[in-house]
Simulated assay, not measured.
Amino acid sequence: MELTGVLPDCIGNLTSLQSLLLARNNLEGTIPESLARSSSLIELNLSRNNLSGEIPPSFFNGSSKLVTVDLQTNSFVGKIPLPRNMGTLRFLDLTGNLLSGRIPPSLANISSLSSILLGQNNLSGPIPESLSQIANLNKLDLSGNRLSGFVPVTLYNKSSLEFFGIGNNSLIGKIPPDIGHTLPNLKSLVMSLNRFDGSIPTSLANASNLQMLDLSSNHLSGSVPALGSLRNLNKLLLGSNRLGADIWSLITSLTNCTRLLELSMDGNNLNGSLPKSIGNLSTHLQKLKFGGNQITGIIPDEIGKLIHLSLLEINTNKQSGQIPMTIGNLKKLFILNLSMNELSGQIPSTIGNLSQLASFILIIITYLVKYRQI
C-alpha cells in the first residue's frame, strides 16, 4: 500500500478509533488537531512518511489514552511538546525528524514510559537527569543530536536499561568504573562520536547480556580490558581512540566471544604481533579492522580460518613478511586492505580465489610495487 495526500481533519472524529497504523506511505502535511485530541486512540503509527509541521501538544495532555506514539522518519519541526499528567504512554519514537530545542525534563512525568527514542534530530543542551526517575525505562536513544555536557550519573545507575544510545553528540566525561555492575541488563551500549576520555572500565566484562559495545571515536586511552566473558557479544567497536594494548592478549581474550560478527580496533595504539589465535576468533566474524595501529610481525596463516570475513583491514601498521597463501580461503572477502605496511614477496596466487573481491585489491598491488622501489 502506498497512500498519498494529507490526513483528513475528520479522522479524529472517529470516536471508537483505537489504532491508526499508516506507516511506510507517502502521506504529507501536518497532523490534524482533531486526531491529537482523540480520547479513544491507543496506538498511533505514522512513521516513515513525509509529514511535517509541529507535533500537536494535545497528544500529551492528561486525557490521552495513548500507549504507543511512533512518528519516526518524518520531517516534524519545533520542540518536543511538554507532557502533562499522562499515565499510559509506554513507547515514544520521534527518531529521524528535525526536532530542536531541549529534551523536556517533564518527560519523566510519564511514569509509564519504557522506550524513549529521540535519535537523529537537532536536540541540544544537556541530558535531563530526571529521565532516570522513570521506573521501567529500558530503551533510551538520544544519539545523533547536539547534546552536550556530562551524562547524569543517575542514568548510569538505571538498572532497567537494556539499550542506552547517546552516540554522535558532544558529551564529555569518563565512563563510570562500575558501569558493568550498575547496568546489569544492558544489551547495547552506544557512546561513539563524543568526547569521552579516561579508560574503558573492566567492569564491562560483568555485563553478561551485552551484545553491542560501541565506544568508537572518543578520547579513550589505556588498555582494552579482557571481555571474553561476554558470550553474547556480536559487535565490539573501539576504533579511533587512544587505546594501547598488546594485540596478542586482546585477541586471545575475544576468542571466547563465539557470536562476534564485527571487531573494529582501527586508529589506536595497539602494538605487538598478530597471534596465531586470531584463527580462533568467531567463525561468524564478518568485519575485522585493525588499521592505523603499531602492529608488527607477520600476518599469521591462521587468519585464513575466518572464512566468513567480508572486510579485512590491517592497513597502516608495521606488518612485514609475505601475504599468507591462506588469504585465498576468505572467499567472501569484498574489501581487503593491507596497504601502508612493510610487506614483501609476491602476491599469492590464491588471491584469484576471492571472486567477490572488489577493486580494493589494487591498493595491495600499488603499495607492494612502491615497497619494491624503495
Rank of each mutant, 00 (worst) to 15 (best):
residue 357 L to R: 07
residue 305 K to Y: 14
residue 128 P to S: 05
residue 58 S to L: 13
residue 46 L to D: 12
residue 287 K to D: 13
residue 55 I to Q: 11
residue 24 R to P: 01
residue 284 H to V: 00
residue 284 H to P: 00
residue 297 G to E: 03
residue 281 L to M: 11
residue 368 L to F: 14
residue 225 P to G: 14
residue 113 L to N: 01
residue 205 A to T: 09
residue 226 A to H: 05
residue 71 L to Q: 09
residue 12 G to D: 05
residue 261 L to Y: 09
residue 357 L to Y: 01
residue 206 N to C: 04
residue 116 I to A: 02
residue 288 L to A: 07
residue 190 V to D: 13
residue 83 P to C: 08
residue 117 L to H: 13
residue 339 S to G: 05
residue 138 N to S: 02
residue 172 I to S: 08
residue 334 F to S: 11
residue 233 L to D: 04
residue 28 E to P: 00
residue 7 L to A: 14
residue 224 V to Y: 01
residue 39 S to N: 10
residue 77 V to H: 15
residue 331 K to S: 11
residue 113 L to F: 06
residue 322 Q to H: 15
residue 193 L to C: 02
residue 342 E to T: 08
residue 221 S to F: 03
residue 167 G to V: 13
residue 54 E to N: 14
residue 296 T to S: 08
residue 55 I to G: 09
residue 336 L to G: 13
residue 161 L to C: 06
residue 251 I to Y: 00
residue 110 I to C: 00
residue 62 G to I: 01
residue 126 P to T: 11
residue 279 G to D: 06
residue 274 L to H: 01
residue 342 E to G: 07
residue 343 L to W: 09
residue 277 S to N: 12
residue 122 N to E: 06
residue 30 T to A: 06
residue 135 A to Q: 07
residue 127 I to W: 07
residue 269 N to C: 09
residue 266 D to L: 03
residue 4 T to N: 12
residue 329 N to V: 10
residue 290 F to T: 03
residue 122 N to M: 05
residue 179 I to T: 00
residue 289 K to M: 08
residue 96 G to D: 04
residue 333 L to Q: 03
residue 315 N to W: 09
residue 319 Q to A: 15
residue 77 V to R: 15
residue 284 H to W: 01
residue 49 N to L: 08
residue 96 G to M: 05
residue 89 L to T: 09
residue 364 I to N: 06
residue 64 S to C: 08
residue 312 L to C: 06
residue 341 N to R: 04
residue 280 N to F: 09
residue 123 L to Y: 03
residue 300 P to L: 04
residue 369 V to R: 12
residue 342 E to R: 12
residue 68 T to R: 13
residue 40 S to N: 10
residue 144 G to Y: 14
residue 283 T to I: 09
residue 342 E to I: 04
residue 254 L to N: 02
residue 63 S to N: 12
residue 190 V to H: 15
residue 13 N to S: 09
residue 52 S to I: 00
residue 143 S to W: 04
residue 105 P to T: 06
residue 37 R to T: 11
residue 83 P to D: 00
residue 267 G to H: 07
